[in-house]
Amino acid sequence: MFRSWWPLAVVVALPGLLLAGFGMTHPSGLHAGNAHWWTTLHILLLPVLPLLGVSLWVLLTPAVRPLRWAGRLAAYGYATFYGGLDAVAGIAAGTVEDASGGVSPLTGTLFEVGDTLGYVGAWSFLVGSVCVVAGIAPRAGWRVAPGAVLLLAASVSFLDSHLFWPRGVYTMVAIAVGMFLLSWATAPASADERNTAHADGSPH
């Protein structure tokens, strides 16, 4: 069983780990002194942030069709709106701050727009995570619990943590581990688990 499930589990966990790594270098706030790196960092994040939505999309595969497509719509919403946050409050705000030397009033306006986009995206991610857990639970039984607790708790934290150190980094690590464990939960039960279930009188 191990060889059949772990490569996919690594793939779905990888985006969260990558984002945690980027988060360790994320400035705690934007100012003229770090504006160039702020802009560069968010350019690097642009192709990585949507991959969390791809992981949700993959984990939704076992769900029944209505739940699967509701979750995938939420994953698409996350990728779209959170990418908007990255572009507006990341790339655009950093560029304005760098060019103006920290004196432009436009930066605050860009943050207001970006925060709104990010809030919609983060809520979409939470909805997608709930759909993932609900889609896996009927087939996985107790094995869904560890990953579900981590993913749902981290998804709530993600509503306002972004990638900022330390909570944002811990949030991304928890998302990665939660997704890894949920991928494991979708794998067929091992022979030992099936024998135990049969011995307890569970149906074949």
Score class of each variant (00 low, 15 high):
Trp5Ser: 02
Ala9Gln: 07
Ala9Phe: 02
Val12Met: 02
Val12Ala: 03
Leu14Asn: 06
Pro15Met: 04
Gly16Ala: 03
Leu17His: 03
Leu18Thr: 10
Thr25Ala: 15
Thr25Glu: 10
Leu30Tyr: 04
His31Gln: 13
Asn34Met: 12
Asn34Gln: 14
Ala35Gln: 11
Trp37Ser: 08
Thr40Glu: 11
Thr40Leu: 14
Leu41Lys: 09
Ile43Gly: 00
Pro47His: 08
Leu51Tyr: 02
Leu52Gln: 03
Gly53Val: 01
Gly53Pro: 01
Ser55Gln: 05
Ser55Leu: 04
Arg65Leu: 13
Arg72Asp: 05
Ala75Trp: 05
Tyr76Thr: 15
Tyr76Asn: 06
Gly77Val: 06
Gly77Cys: 07
Tyr82Met: 13
Leu85Gln: 10
Leu85Asp: 07
Val88Tyr: 02
Ala89Gln: 08
Gly90Thr: 09
Gly90Tyr: 10
Ala92Glu: 06
Ala92Arg: 02
Ala93Cys: 06
Ala93Arg: 03
Gly101Gln: 12
Val103Ile: 11
Ser104His: 06
Pro105Leu: 09
Thr107Ser: 12
Glu112Gln: 12
Val113Phe: 07
Val120Thr: 11
Gly121Gln: 11
Trp123Leu: 14
Phe125His: 14
Phe125Leu: 15
Ser129Asp: 01
Val133Gln: 05
Gly135Phe: 09
Ala140His: 07
Arg143Cys: 12
Arg143Pro: 15
Pro146Thr: 06
Pro146Lys: 04
Gly147Met: 03
Gly147Tyr: 01
Val149Phe: 10
Leu151Trp: 01
Leu152Ser: 05
Ala153Gly: 04
Ala154His: 00
Ser155Asp: 01
Val156Lys: 06
Asp160Arg: 08
Asp160Leu: 02
Ser161Pro: 00
Ser161Ala: 15
His162Cys: 00
Leu163Phe: 14
Leu163Arg: 00
Trp165Ile: 04
Arg167His: 07
Arg167Tyr: 14
Thr171Cys: 10
Ala174Ile: 01
Ala174Thr: 01
Ala176Gly: 02
Phe180Glu: 04
Leu181Glu: 01
Ser183Leu: 04
Ala185His: 05
Pro188Asp: 15
Asp192Tyr: 08
Glu193Val: 10
Glu193Ala: 15
Glu193Thr: 09
Asn195Lys: 13
His198Glu: 12
Pro203Asn: 11
